[in-house]
Write a protein that binds this DNA or RNA. Structure first.
Lengths: 216, 216
DNA sequence: AAAATAGACTAGTCAGTCTAGTTTTATAAA
DNA sequence: TTTATAAAACTAGACTGACTAGTCTATTTT
């Protein structure tokens, strides 16, 4: 009979209903544990237990701990891709850059971003492919967006960015602030959180001031 | 016996001649291995072997692996303390900031600095005292130096830094450049090394431009 | 006598394999 | 439609082999 009311391939339905579901459970547990406790301190037994799955199932879906790690970080990166929809109006850089500063400034120090970043850095030597995934999905992507925006702003003569790429780098780095460094080092951050919005705004203004075209 | 041909203090020679010498060997090996392979992947047997010393000797000088780690990072930090002797002439910020940019820009991406930093970050959650040591000896120290310098520059009216501390943070972060991020992630850096001096100079100029007092 | 040595030893962890038995699902006959 | 059946996927848990922090002992050096 091979009954199938939908037009969708049999395999696809079958695989997603159980096998693929287990796969997802494993992947989600791996993301959580790898980012929470780090790669070396997370054991495969733990992942299996957390996913409510047997160890053999973990190994039948992902051949090794390394493979699982790569798959987990890859998923995390895909989830957090951000769009450049703010970076459009080239006629009003004051508003756009300030808005971007606020958004990026929060994103970069969010718990999720920090944990993925730290996990990638910690394993960079042993898992370069993971670093690459992260860099392309994160920094490279966002630098491209800003560089393109600054290039457009150049055409309106109000501001001038001689090297849009380098300017994009400088802007993003400044927006890290002390906060990011202290988060990386797991130091106390309470006193910085309050002044953070002001810091981000000041940074946006300082950035534009440095590139304002002289005489009006 | 206690023979001593030189005029140097007995204690110093005696203490340094065996026990302290072994201690130094262990400490130096620990610094090297912890920074090279990271804390979790360095075993005490390895440290002992690298130092040409027995395991028991390691344990008699440093009670545990954790103690040894703290001692090793502490030593590394002390060695790399940098002075603020460049940051003096408040009348010529162009020259001073450019000089600082070049020096700091190289220091921050040096192999030694990077490895210590990465090691501290990797162990920040499990060894917060190590993070503190690093932060105080490194970032905190240098930010203090620049903040004080910018405050002095303020008094000459040519440049104005409304918030010298935040300005110091922004300057240092910008000087990281793409290079530091790519080094953290162990990605290819060849193409950046060539343009690095220009990037540092542009950054110094951009920084000053943003704080130049308007009318002359 | 104090300090260093080699190396055995304990007790624990973990990646990955293997076994043996159970559940799910696809297929195809009744 | 129901039912039989075989393949595929999952399960618990034992097991191998390798590694590690830290202790202990017996011996040698200074």
């Amino acid at each position: 009979m091979t009954e199938n009311t939908s037009g969708i391939n049999n395999d696809e339905q079958a695989n997603l209903s159980r096998s693929e579901q287990k796969r997802m459970q494993v992947l989600e547990s791996a993301m959580e544990l790898f980012c929470q406790k780090g790669f070396p301190l997370t054991s495969m037994d733990e992942v299996a237990k957390h996913a409510g799955v047997s160890k053999q199932t973990v190994y039948s879906h992902f051949g090794s701990k390394d493979d699982l790690f790569v798959a987990a970080i890859d998923s995390k990166c895909v989830v957090h891709q951000l769009t450049g929809d703010i970076l459009t109006d080239a006629r009003d850089p004051q508003r756009v850059i300030l808005l971007f500063a606020k958004q990026f400034g929060e994103l970069i120090v969010s718990k999720d971003t920090m944990t993925v970043f730290k996990t990638c850095v910690a394993q960079a030597d042993t898992h370069p492919e993971v670093s690459k995934l992260f860099y392309d999905a994160g920094p490279k992507h966002i630098l491209g967006l800003i560089r393109d925006y600054l290039t457009k702003v150049n055409q309106h003569g109000q501001y001038y960015f001689e090297n849009p790429h380098d300017s994009a780098v400088r802007l993003c780095l400044m927006l890290f602030g002390e906060l990011k460094l202290r988060l990386e080092l797991a130091l106390e951050t309470e006193h910085l959180l309050l002044s953070r919005p002001q810091y981000l705004q000041d940074t946006a203004e300082m950035f534009l001031r440095a590139h304002k075209v002289a005489i009006k």
